[in-house]
Design a protein around this nucleic acid. Structure first.
Length: 270
DNA sequence: CACTCTACCTGTGCGC
DNA sequence: TGCGCACAGGTAGAGT
């Protein structure tokens, strides 16, 4: 499940691709499954994007933005991987897979595939990334402790749904919400109203350290289920198995329709 | 405002 | 072996 660390890995992969994407023109563009394009007709999408030079690759939360230039005209291709989207980069010999939805071929010889077995992921066009970012909270790795605290004090919500709310902070999904709450020693159903300053500080530090560690590791590794990098989850998907802190079994409950994993002993309800 | 539910999807793993 | 089905979840949008 691509969340902030996995999307950051994709952004870096695109920036560092060999042959390069950055600074080169899109020579060919193929919508193998046209439904991948949102908000604009596929013919128009192809017409607008083809031939443009990729000037930048940026990220906010789980959204990717490719700056596409045509002379002085600049627009952005936004990309969201949703549940199961994958970006692959390589040379012209790289082969599409059974779930490849879009193919971009560069005049450098570079190729970019967007694969997504569940067809949840989407690409679309915006004149400026702020069109998307304006509806999101600050990026989870950009926000400072003070802003995090002031935003959380404006809310009266359970911590788990709050962390998943992209308009609160952008980039945290189900995996890193559970991991952050475990790291902070906070119960997923704990309400923000009963969280003191120390608790808010612990949660902020937990979010930052978990995400930074995961970015450094290139994304999560959930044995047998999902592997983007080498970040080993401590609670997510580990129901019934011993807590890495206390050895008691991890529990799984449902919070807002989401599977939620936590240690009842290390994350007591205040 | 907080929350719940549904739709969108398909690979996986379970019970029978 | 094979079938049917619940399950996984990010987001949008509608409803409570």
């Amino acid at each position: 499940m691509p969340e902030l660390p996995e999307v950051e890995s994709v952004a870096r992969q695109c920036r560092d691709a060999i042959p390069p994407l950055l600074g080169h023109a899109i020579g060919s563009l193929e919508l193998i499954w046209p439904g991948v394009v949102d908000g604009v007709e596929q013919e128009r999408f192809l017409q607008i994007v083809s031939g443009r030079i990729i000037r930048s690759v940026s990220r906010h939360g789980k959204y990717l933005f490719f700056g596409l230039a045509d002379g002085n005209d600049l627009l952005f291709m936004a990309l969201h991987l949703r549940m199961t989207g994958i970006v692959r980069t390589g040379d012209a010999q790289m082969q599409p897979g059974p779930h490849t939805r879009m193919r971009i071929g560069m005049d450098s010889g570079a190729t970019l595939f967007f694969d997504d077995p569940r067809k949840f992921g989407r690409v679309w066009l915006v004149n400026d990334p702020t069109e998307v970012i304006n509806s999101l909270g600050p990026d989870a790795l950009e926000i400072c402790a003070g802003e995090f605290a002031s935003r959380i004090r404006q809310k009266g919500r359970q911590l788990k749904p709050l962390l998943l709310d992209q308009s609160f902070v952008a980039g945290i999904g189900n995996i890193y919400a559970d991991e952050s709450l475990f790291q902070a020693g906070l119960h997923p159903l704990c309400n923000t109203r009963i969280l003191d300053d120390a608790g808010i500080g612990r949660l902020y530090q937990a979010v930052v350290s978990v995400l930074q560690e995961a970015v450094h590791a290139g994304g999560a590794n959930i044995d047998g289920v999902f592997k983007a990098g080498e970040y080993a989850v401590r609670v997510y998907g580990r129901e019934g198995r011993p807590c890495v802190n206390c050895g008691r079994p991890i529990e799984k409950i449902r919070v807002g329709q989401r599977g939620t994993h936590f240690c009842p002993f290390c994350q007591p309800m205040p």
